[in-house]
Design a protein around this nucleic acid. Sequence first.
DNA 1: TTAAAAAATGCAACCGATTGCAAAAAAAAT
DNA 2: ATTTTTTTTGCAATCGGTTGCATTTTTTAA
Lengths: 340, 340
Amino acid sequence: MAPEKEVTIYDIARYLNLSAATISRGLKDHPAINKKTKKKIIEAAKTLGYRSNMFASNLRTRQTKTIGVIIPRLNSYFMSTVIAGIESIANEEGYNLIISQSLESTEKEAANAITMFNSRVDGVLVSLASDTNNVNHFNAFLQKKIPIIYFDRTMATSDCMSISIDNFKAAFEITTHLIEQGCKRIMHLGGNITRNVYADRLAGYKAALKKAGLPVHENLIRFSNLSDEAGTEAGKYICSLTQKPDAVFAANDTCATYCMLYLKQHGYKIPTDIMFAGFNNDPISKVVEPNLTTINYPGYVMGQIAATNLINHLKGIADIGTTNIVILRSELIVRASSKK
Amino acid sequence: MAPEKEVTIYDIARYLNLSAATISRGLKDHPAINKKTKKKIIEAAKTLGYRSNMFASNLRTRQTKTIGVIIPRLNSYFMSTVIAGIESIANEEGYNLIISQSLESTEKEAANAITMFNSRVDGVLVSLASDTNNVNHFNAFLQKKIPIIYFDRTMATSDCMSISIDNFKAAFEITTHLIEQGCKRIMHLGGNITRNVYADRLAGYKAALKKAGLPVHENLIRFSNLSDEAGTEAGKYICSLTQKPDAVFAANDTCATYCMLYLKQHGYKIPTDIMFAGFNNDPISKVVEPNLTTINYPGYVMGQIAATNLINHLKGIADIGTTNIVILRSELIVRASSKK
DNA sequence: TTAAAAAATGCAACCGATTGCAAAAAAAAT
DNA sequence: ATTTTTTTTGCAATCGGTTGCATTTTTTAA
């Protein structure tokens, strides 16, 4: 509790009969310092048990070596995978991570942004809350030229770099796949379309229908928070329909899975009666029976790329301002839930 | 990139014709400052766009308002849930979180510990890597009286507070449950027994057998990293046995699930031929068919409790030194995989 | 041997908030 | 009106590392 006395560069300076300035330079490998002196300094630092005081350093250099991460929630497979990817790079590059969750609330997102701003993070990685429809609460960062990179849940209007997959294309492909399997009445379980990802998936779905000359039935498009309960609800809804769909494409695997489970319990045969497709390649997609056709979403890589870009920008290696959008490769994974 | 000029308390002082000391005190509601003056100060701070410089503050107060978290990996359901719980409390209390993963490597764990130490976190929450068998790499914290709380993967010898569930009891209960269902040859798929959690689960399993007067068959106890592959492997192993087990108790749900899936594919009927039980109450346990009997592990609450205890200690409200072990309530969840 | 150039080190002023103690101002008591 | 007490406010040192510029030392050139 009581702060212990720490060894400072002044202690080392006294110990070696040098100046603090020399110690400071020696410790960070400044070219103007004699190699032998450096060696002595480093050894002395070790024997005295010195550790750099980042606050003093930050105070002077106005850098924190810290990256802020704001995400809707931590405890989803996808998000924790992204964070793992971010962490792997940040750790390697000597950056710390400050993480906070918006819990899908724009207000909390804004509050977290302020906290991060006051913590003086060097840069921010953001995945937006589901109903965030403007990014004004990040203006403080922009004014101070603190770089922001949006990932996954991005904002179209934003003038920051954003990283995502081509949700339109992925949805288009997976829908087309269902059509190729002979499906004609494909239902879509979508998320909040304020969010680019869900809007794009919906658009891709519609485009695929259109291209195949199939009609878009509005009563076959349902929106929800894509939770397991929402999946079950969708199952009930399907049971209530007189004209059943012959396939379901859900915007995530959880919703698809629970919908499928409900229908199975009510006598439907998958994929014979209804085919299924999800999104994300969540672990449950490989467990549910039949295994779920889905889109592989490269979360880990996405995290790594986001972190790499941000850090390179901070190091002055590559400017973020020039690149606007990065699209990662996603991949259709066909499993038993959509095979004839 | 180029650091912008910031508003400091000196700017406010000049603006209001007061001293920096008064501003500093006014901003933090010091009792010696006149209420009207405080009001003026706060308003001025707002209009000037002031934000506190935490480095200057930290430099003086030797506190960082930051908590370090070291965990094996982020991208597991359980861990991300714990982190979510930690974050919820930390955020509320104005603490930042620095998170890093050891990826189950003791060396990386030690490296991360050093980084955190140098980042001067106020306290640390740790869940140990699977093969960590001593906690010497955390000595630096102890020497500087920086509090550590271990959670889930704890270390028996440690003189720090640790938070976990009663793994022995949980394993005992779930094994007993299987026995009550009529099982006599129960297999155990365990994890690395260097780790308390897995050692305790194994012990609980054995104790339950013993209590029921059942023999412990060493060839029915297998150790692995509890991954999905390990589960599949276990399935193969079972197929190769002449004397089959009539139940499997795995130390996590993933391993149980994949073992079960493998056996199902090879003609076994669950639970008729073999019953199954897992651990953790992972989402997949509710998806696999039949649903998996498991132990509900309160990750979110565990995270909250760990964070609360650490922060209370830091605030001087409650000393951590006196409490050694906190055991959370866990709960047997019986599902179809183990019902006659 | 001396002058010029290069290398190594030191000086001292920051960075911005905090805080013990002293001083000033305001309020209360005499 | 004067003294005592209580409130407010200010002074100035401090936290520890960084860095432009000056100074010293060493090396090279003349």
